[in-house]
Simulated scan of single mutants.
Amino acid sequence: MRLVQIAQRAGDLQRAARWYADLLEAAPVATFDPPGLVFFDLDGVRLLLEGNAPAALLYLAVDDIAATVERLRAAGTEITAEPHVIFTHADDTLGPAGTAEWQAFVEDSEGNLVGLVEHRAPA
């Protein structure tokens, strides 16, 4: 079994589509309006923005958490938790063994919380 799609609440579909396009640095792969659906491709998993969807807490992998947070901050995104280490992976059960897992949290244009995750090798 594999994850196929995640739906995220978008009160203002166009605003949300712009925000996620900026965050993901990618354009939507499909838009159907009506009925009000925007899709992004997250490495084979569909992210669906929809007005009637419930809010979801997404965790997205980023290559450089500090640079991503600063780029989003400069664009006016509210940063709700600055980058910080959550834990170090002793084995590869939840992430690459030996890496520190950094997380930060931002608020999207619709008020949904979005987690950013970087696995950082030891210096």
Rank of each mutant, 00 (worst) to 15 (best):
A7M: 11
L13Q: 08
E50D: 15
D108C: 14
A97D: 11
G95D: 07
Q8D: 08
G36R: 06
L58M: 11
A100L: 03
L47I: 10
P83E: 08
D64G: 07
G11K: 13
Q8A: 10
A67I: 09
F105R: 15
E78A: 14
A61Y: 08
G98W: 05
R46H: 13
R46D: 12
L116P: 01
R46M: 13
A55S: 03
D41C: 11
E70D: 15
E25N: 09
A21K: 08
E107W: 11
V69D: 01
A7Y: 13
T99D: 05
D22M: 15
E82C: 07
E50K: 14
G36E: 00
A123D: 13
T80V: 02
L49W: 04
L49T: 03
A121R: 03
P34I: 14
Y59G: 12
T88I: 00
T93R: 14
D63S: 12
A104L: 05
V69Q: 03
V4N: 15
W19D: 00
F87H: 14
P122S: 04
D91V: 08
G51E: 02
L57R: 12
V114H: 06
D64N: 12
L13D: 04
T77I: 09
T77Y: 05
S109N: 06
A17P: 05
G98Y: 01
W19K: 02
L60A: 02
L24C: 06
Q14G: 15
R15K: 15
P96R: 03
L23K: 01
V114A: 03
V85M: 07
N52R: 15
G76M: 10
Y20A: 04
V85A: 02
I86A: 02
L49G: 04
R18N: 13
L60W: 06
T99W: 01
T31V: 11
N52E: 14
A10N: 04
G111Y: 08
H89Y: 12
G76A: 09
E78Y: 07
P83G: 07
A21G: 02
P28K: 12
V62T: 01
A121L: 04
E82A: 14
P28I: 02
P122I: 04
A66F: 04
D22Y: 15
L72W: 04
V38Q: 02
D22H: 10
F40G: 03
W102Q: 08
F40N: 01
T80G: 07
Q14S: 14
G36S: 09
E118M: 00
I86E: 05
S109W: 02
E78G: 06
F40L: 04
P96S: 03
V38A: 07
L37G: 00
E50P: 03
P28D: 00
L113I: 03
L72H: 01
G115V: 00
A53V: 04
L116G: 01
D12G: 11
L72D: 05
D64W: 06
G51Y: 07
D12P: 00
H89I: 06
V69P: 01
A30E: 15
A100F: 07
D108N: 11
A121D: 06
L58D: 09
V38Y: 00
G98I: 10
V62L: 09
